[in-house]
Design a protein around this nucleic acid. Structure first.
Lengths: 198, 198
DNA sequence: AGCAGAACTCATCATGTGTTGAATTTAAGT
DNA sequence: ACTTAAATTCAACACATGATGAGTTCTGCT
């Protein structure tokens, strides 16, 4: 999407003047590309091109491709600041609250990107799948199931519902869910989530 | 998974004696590999290796990689012989019937493979995503929504629920849903599907 | 029996991949 | 001011990929 001018036909080797900002640029480009193409579909060279530097620099900062990925994915969603909101919601509005939190995360690209990247990558990459598996079980299922009294299986069905709709909406882009409003989605999904966790 | 002996260090060129069976072998190998690794993660050479032939033969039969994929995916689920069962079910058991049909499809690897392959591939490949998008809307949503009186959006939420759980169960393999029994899943999901389509 | 065409392999091309080591320029520490 | 270390590029390796064209062996039709 972002096509840097790439005017720098030739830049002399050696450290650039001024403070170092390339590392951050690499991570930003990596997040964008991983979200768009998944782990296997994203090459180190494409990241470097988007970040305006040499591929070897990516390698220098992060060791290898796996290093770039795990560093770029560090902070998909921090459940810490989300759980309080969940627990202080009245029990009969738990479903609605949860759906709203999900929708908030998906709202701006900034926060959605790592999640989608993870989903996309986990489909074809075993390592990414492991990452996602652990995130789901330890960060979502256990906490929700522990806080509320529900079984893990029911909690997982709720997660499945949200993940499934997210994939249809943001990856496959099937209508009408792709262009439904957030309010419509709340109305649609909240009762089901409530049913699973109630 | 399947590692042919690969003893044929060197086989003479030219047509093999007997009836032609290599084309079918290639398609079988392709389905297995696409299901395991997705479109982009599967190479023509890997398919040829698994089918015990030269990569060029794959190209000869199907033109190019895209040709192999679309041919291998031709018959993910034929909705024609599934819809009758749906429509003759009593309206208050529609959810359960639908869940059972889905579970049947996922039961044996033979029938599950193309579906999983499609899901995996659609995550990183735009062309596969288009294929899946069209399949979902024309083969699932429209028919279900037309047969029953429900809105497209609600039908899509139901599809999302099933797809989400399938991904958790067969791709990410999160417990406990990965090793839950079919009966447990029916009990878990049928009410929700019924709710969406009722 | 003979021949067109299908099945099949081989060698090869152009391109893209992750990774490495050496060389050069600047920033930081003393 | 000097030195160490960090940031950066370049050139290259070893390998995998999709694709192509030519050549070989068999089947099926007449």
């Amino acid at each position: 999407m972002k096509s840097e001018p790439d005017v720098r036909q030739t830049r002399r080797p050696g450290r650039r003047p001024g403070p170092t900002e390339t590392r951050a640029a690499i991570l930003a480009a990596a997040r964008e590309l991983f979200a768009e193409k998944g782990y296997d579909g994203t090459s180190l060279r494409a990241i470097a091109r988007a970040a305006g530097c040499d591929p070897a620099l990516v390698h220098h900062f992060f060791g290898n491709k796996e290093g770039v990925f795990t560093t770029a994915m560090q902070f998909p969603v921090t459940p810490a600041d989300v759980l309080p909101r969940l627990l202080e919601a009245p029990p009969d509005q738990l479903g609605e609250t949860l759906v709203r939190i999900f929708l908030e995360i998906w709202r701006d690209e900034e926060r959605r990107a790592p999640v989608i990247a993870m989903v996309r990558s986990a489909m074809t990459n075993e390592q990414a799948a492991t990452l996602m598996r652990e995130f789901i079980t330890t960060a979502l299922l256990r906490r929700v199931a522990a806080a509320r009294g529900t079984s893990l299986l029911r909690a997982e069905a709720a997660v499945g519902q949200m993940v499934g709709v997210a994939i249809l909406r943001y990856v496959i882009k099937t209508e009408p869910v792709a262009s439904a409003s957030e309010e419509e989605l709340v109305e649609l999904l909240a009762p089901v989530i409530q049913h699973y966790l109630g």
